[in-house]
Structure formats: structure tokens, C-alpha cells
Design a protein around this nucleic acid. Sequence first.
DNA 1: TCAAAAGTGTTGCCTTTACACCCATGC
DNA 2: GCATGGGTGTAAAGGCAACACTTTTGA
Lengths: 232, 232
Amino acid sequence: MKKIDENGRYDNNEKLHIATDCIILGFEEQKLKLLLFKRKIEPMKGEWSLIGSSIRLNEDIDAAAQRILKESTGLDKVFMQQLKTYGKKNREPGCRFISIAYYALINIPDHVMDETKEYDARWFEIDEVPNLILDHDEMVKDAFLQLKQDARHKPIGLKLLPEKFTFTQLQKLYEAIFRTEFDERNFRKKVGSLKMLKKLNEKDKSTSRKGAFLYKFNMGRYEKSLKLGHIF
Amino acid sequence: MKKIDENGRYDNNEKLHIATDCIILGFEEQKLKLLLFKRKIEPMKGEWSLIGSSIRLNEDIDAAAQRILKESTGLDKVFMQQLKTYGKKNREPGCRFISIAYYALINIPDHVMDETKEYDARWFEIDEVPNLILDHDEMVKDAFLQLKQDARHKPIGLKLLPEKFTFTQLQKLYEAIFRTEFDERNFRKKVGSLKMLKKLNEKDKSTSRKGAFLYKFNMGRYEKSLKLGHIF
DNA sequence: TCAAAAGTGTTGCCTTTACACCCATGC
DNA sequence: GCATGGGTGTAAAGGCAACACTTTTGA
């Protein structure tokens, strides 16, 4: 039976390996996208997969995820959060690998990611994500569920939108995450009432002749008091 | 620097170990409780801690958690869910250990747990939980947060309550989880409207002369349609 | 007959939903 | 002057929060 060592090469150690995999989600052109990589090693070389690597002996697991992200994309100091650990005994053929999955959120146009070229990486719209190797499909599915969950009470727009954004962009982001459409008037009214946005005296004229006001996040305001209605 | 091997004994391997720890939460006498164990090995022998153990090479991580739970308490086929993985490089002194934490939910009176005697284990009410070793305090804190989260949309009562229960018991459970009190009339109205309970033709007369009707869970009904109000 | 827990309704307020038209501008 | 996306208000319905008294029955 084939084995893979800590650097991803073949090896015969009968041991338990541990790695992290990164689910990199981005927002661009009003669409949620996932960054995938062409696998560089056998088995399954050339197939689409998440990027991952073994954890080093003297490295925090969070740091390992950040390191892998940086090595493969150049992204640094980007929002990243532990998702879940995948550890079925046969999840990786020929070798026992436990993988701690992390997910990252970025606004795609904000970042230059030259490193992705050498990795043969590509952004996929969420409806066009191909089949992935191993249990990576499950990881991606879980990441989208988690994103929906986080979107309810955390300012994920801070990570996925540019610093200044229009109301329309914000709405498209939430529509992409929840895969639905919202009434524009109700959306503006609701978001407005949360007082989490600061209106700027600038307009983005790139999408209309009239121009749309730009907003920034204001923070705070993400906790609600404990009422029955918020529980069930 | 001292090392600990996969069986928890001292050892000099310079390697990365992986374990699971179990946060065992129970409900009894209208109180949420946590099962803690007196640590049997050095260092920190005799201090209160969660129960945990290394993961075996050919064992799913979920199975490892179930095994550890069974070995230490006798609990079998009990609800258990992955919580989070803890992997700071210095979380365990003298040895690199990554721990995948799981949390279990049980109705305490439903279970006989003889094995806990040989482990020197005790249930603690949530307000009386002592300081724990390593980062176990953090794990417990995270477990309670997760429980709150789960209580919003999952029928956790199924795990924490007996099969048949009274409205009062259900309310006390939610009050314990959310650490607050609810108006009794509003609680009955709200829970009633969810249609997740089936009223039985039996009464529990153990807590009042009048007797309280018993209920069972009906399942389903835990998903809500996607409206703005459910998002923010 | 009384103590102790079980059980029940109404009202005001606020939030959510549904729905359609005018505005500003560059071309 | 017209096409394009930006921006706005109102009414009806439903959900939530606040609030106090009656019922049952065993001792």
C-alpha cells in the first residue's frame, strides 16, 4: 500500500499524518467564487482540489493554514477560520491523513495573487465547481453552510467586499450567499436600521450614469438581546 | 523537555500526537451539567479535566471519540458531535498534541454510568465548574456557545430530555442553555406554534398534585423559509 | 382548605412583507 | 430624449413582549 510522507511524497511510514486544507472563497463581479488548484502529485494528479499541506511539528494549526495560504496564493493576513476536521480512516487512499479544514474569505479584486499561476489555480463560480478529489466536495459544501451561518451575525462583508462598496454590491453578496433574491426596498430598510453602515460622500459611477453612493462598515451592532424570537 | 507518547506515558518522540477530548454535557434536575474527570497521570495528576485519549491509526476520528466516551463512562450510541480542533503548538507542555474536541449531550437519569466510578468522575453544574487543565476551559466555553447555537435550530431536547417530558422541563432546559428566564405563557405559545411536540395522554405527577401533561418530540419543522428577518 | 405547580388570553408594538414608480445622468 | 441602474414609501399581517388570574388535587 502506498504511503505519503509529511512533504507529500511517497513514503512507507505507518503513521498518522495531519494536514490542513484551505477553502478559499472570494467575491468578484457580484459572484461568490471558490479558488481551486490542479493537483501536482500522484495519485489524482491533474484533478481539481483544495490546497493543503502537512502541519509542522512546531507550528500552531492556525499558523499552518495561514502559511499554506500564503505559499500557494501569496495571500497574507487574510481572514481565515477553522471549519472542521475530517478524519475518516479511509479518506485518503493508502495513507492515514487527518485534515483540519480552514476557510478564507477575500474580496478578489483587492488582491494580486501571482503565486497562483505556478499552482495552476482558477476561480470557479459556485455553480460551476467541478468534482473534487477525496472528500474535498464535502469540505466545500460545509464551508458554504458555515458561510451562511456566519453571514447571519458576523460582518462577513468586511472580508468579502472592498472597503467602500455600494448598497447593491452588499445586497448581491447576501443574495449570492443565501442563493435567493431580496426585495431592494426591504433590504435597504433592514440594513439601514441595523446602523452598521456609514454613508460616504462619494459615488461609484462605474455601473450607472447616476452613480451609487459608497458605504463603509461601522462595526459593532452584531449582538442582539436574547428574546424568544431570536432563539427558535 | 519531557514528552508524552500515544498512550499518555512519558516518551521522547519528537512527533505530533493527535487525540480527542470529550465535553460531556447532561441535563438533570432542571440543570445543565458537565462531566469532569480527575486526571490520572502526571503532569497535573489529580486535577479536573475533560476525558480524552489518542486516536488510533485505523480508526475514524468520530469513532475514536465514541470509543473514549464508552471506555470512560460506558455511554454508547449517544449523541456526539465534533466541536473544534485545538492545536496551539504549546497547548500541552513538553509534547506536541493536537486535540479534536467532541461534545456529547445526554439526559443524565437515562443512563447508568458505572465506569465513571473508576475514573473518579463527577457532574458539575455549569456555575460550579472548577478550573481545568490545559486549554480545557476554552473547550468547555466553546461547547456551551455551540450548544446555544445548536439550540436555535436543532432539536437538542431530543438528546437532553427524557423521551417523555413536561413543558416545564423543556422550558427549564432552554432557560439553562440561554441562561435567562422566559415568560411561561409566551414560551408555551411559541413552542406550541412550532408543532414540534406531540401531547400525550399521560401526566407526570411527580412535581405537582395537579400533574403536568407529558410530551414527545415530533421531529421535522426545524427549517425555516428564507426571509430577511431570519438572516440578520 | 390551602399550598404548589399547571395552565391559559389579550393588547400594543414592532418587524416583516408585498408592491410600483420617479430620479439622475451620460450617451 | 431615452436607456440604465439608483433610490424611495406605505399599508396590511404577523410575531413578540408584557402582563395576572384560575384550575387541580393531595395532604
